[in-house]
Design a protein around this nucleic acid. Structure first.
Lengths: 222, 222, 222, 222
DNA sequence: TATGAATGAGACTTCATTCAT
DNA sequence: AATGAATGAAGTCTCATTCAT
């Protein structure tokens, strides 16, 4: 009788199918150029069906955000809980996770990267709780790192967090767009990005004449 | 210089008045929610007049980009030519310039920050030459810095450039949105951001006692 | 009698439950703003069930009309057969019956009053046989009254019928809408309305100083 | 420059053309079945043009009401100011006016007759000020007539007003619909309706065998 | 050049109706 | 007989763009 509970009759749940389709369409056209009818066609449902699961087009965007951010956060939480390293190690993990996610799901990367910006302008009142949660997780690591002496305490933790996020975000956007044409060594990029953010771009005395290899750049743990 | 301060009725240039109006409207509503008629009203011209200077709404966006990026690049070129320091100093200057610009023209900051992202999706074929030029300038500094040993050569220069831009961009977005409510010490942020990108967030041996952290907590490195 | 008082789950008759629900919804929203799904919910059935009993939404309206008009006509026939008075007395009875019905079932009053008008425009081809029957009954009384000298024969009987109906209809609409807010003495209104239609509003010689009481107004008084 | 003031460039004002078209379409299809595009086509304008003059479809209905009721009220006021007779004479004038109007503009008659009912349900919050004004004018006459002994004071003036309006309204609706097929002597109907409402339908002693002529029925005769 | 009323394509959304279960 | 998720036709309304003045 009640097919609501599990609802796995036709593929992986119609709501999920619609969200998947929306991700694809939003990523390729952008939210405003995406037509509801195109999402419907991509999802293999009728136009009206979308309105059985979502209040309107905006709501599709919002729920898609929440759905994907939730997934990202759960993956992040998993990875971090497994990580036994220093806060710096964990930030490196976080960067790798992002790069991995973007590699496996370029649409998601582009979507998050492009549309997240608009959410400031688009729906000013929408507070985007999942993204705030994401920033909070990252900030907790930074604060812990500052407390324990791994991270410079004279830097504002919120600024660090934003800088990290911005750098990752932009690099991912570039890589994603680039990888659509030519292949890029994304894993290498992750390491370099982590090096840059953790150790800075300036050379150091101990770097010697011929700069150290990436691995050698890591916080000295001899 | 900006002449929109006076903006007499038959203003300095109708085209410029329209661009100024577009900046204001795009910043507050976003490109897609901005109505041509609102730009016209803000500029004090008739709707049709806009089409005497611009091919269409997209073209207003593009020309606004070019106009503002040109201005930014010219400011940047000036600042850099004046600067006699190392490439690292010049990057620090660049960061300060951005923060200054954003402080003086929050609309511009929000516009660039938000709409630039879309230009990837929005007009895929539009190559955004001014932005490319901007990245080129920054990259030249980085490459020079790597050649002269100021910047770690094992980092991909394009990645460095993107990371710098992403970090600045995100921090500016945050600061701009935040400053609309509460006042923020933006100049301090510029310095910290430069410290972070140039020197990294990890503490170093030579950081010594000065750091405000419990020295005992510092990453064990013996 | 109305059985919707109890309306057990497998109620008296699903068709009747739907009609009762439709009356409620049509009265409160009007036919065009009423949603089939709302009727279904009110009736406690599934949307699709309605189409087992009715061809479409229009058909619900039509059958509801016929159902209620049939009821009104049967009540009317009863009352009139019981009445031994003159045609004028019977018209007075008819007016009272209407006012009584409207008092006991405001939804019905509003529904008939508002939606009947549309049936002229709405479904031009629908002849509304029950309403025609209603008018025929009223007309028979009038014609009889004219034949027997109770009613002025120089007035067109169809016009009299329409005028009576129109006056009742409008007064009921007003009373119904008004009574939803404040309480109104509806029975008194029925008497006055009958006085007006039967004896006219102009004073008469015999009315004397203190106008005649309603009961004294009854004709004939030769 | 400003063509707004007079705006008589293209026929009798575009707003008026749209209202005229709306009247025609609403009368023939009813409000809910009327399509905005049909109004536009009938008016000879583009769909979008309608939204330059009206906020939405509902607004067209409301403004049409106000426009036409204003016209009716102005005609009514003229006629009544010219009339030197008793309140009863003036009510007779009012009835004649209505019948004349309906004769000359059947669409208007049908529109007012059918759609006015819905305005109770349709837009409950809309108070329909013009109609209220109309009722007020009629009621003033009735109250004056009661004060001066022409109209029976034991009848509630509001009820009289509603009964008069209802009777006129219904008779007009019938006549209008009927006259679309066969020709009807409408002027005669006006007289008879006035006789009925003013003097009632019951015969009177003085009516004698061959009922009194309309003119002889006029009050007062004390 | 400038205007701004007018245009009309096209998007979102609703909801009566269907049909597989 | 009953369900209610799904359908998709169709309507309202927006707004970039045009063009007669």
């Amino acid at each position: 009788m009640q097919v609501n509970a599990l609802a796995r009759d036709k593929g992986p749940d119609k709501r999920q199918r619609i969200l998947d389709a929306a991700l694809k369409v939003f990523a390729s056209r952008g939210f405003y150029n995406a037509k509801v009818s195109e999402i419907a066609k991509t999802a293999g449902v009728a136009d009206g069906t979308i309105y059985l699961y979502f209040a309107n087009k905006d709501d599709v965007l919002i729920q898609l955000f929440e759905d994907r951010m939730e997934y990202i956060i759960s993956r992040l939480t998993q990875d971090l809980s497994r990580s036994t390293g220093t806060p710096l190690d964990r930030i490196r993990s976080l960067i790798h996770l992002h790069v991995d996610l973007a590699t496996h799901d370029p649409d998601l990367a582009e979507f998050i990267t492009v549309e997240l910006r608009q959410s400031g302008t688009f729906i000013r009142e929408y507070e985007n709780p999942q993204f705030i949660e994401y920033l909070r997780i990252l900030r907790d690591i930074v604060v812990e790192g500052q407390r324990d002496g791994y991270i410079r305490a004279n830097l504002d933790s919120r600024l660090i967090v934003r800088a990290i996020f911005g750098a990752i975000d932009e690099v991912l956007l570039t890589l994603t767009l680039a990888s659509r044409s030519r292949s890029v060594d994304i894993r290498l990029s992750a390491d370099q990005l982590a090096d840059l953010l953790l150790d800075g771009m300036a050379t150091r005395p101990e770097d010697g004449v011929s700069q150290a290899t990436p691995s050698a750049n890591q916080a000295p743990r001899s």
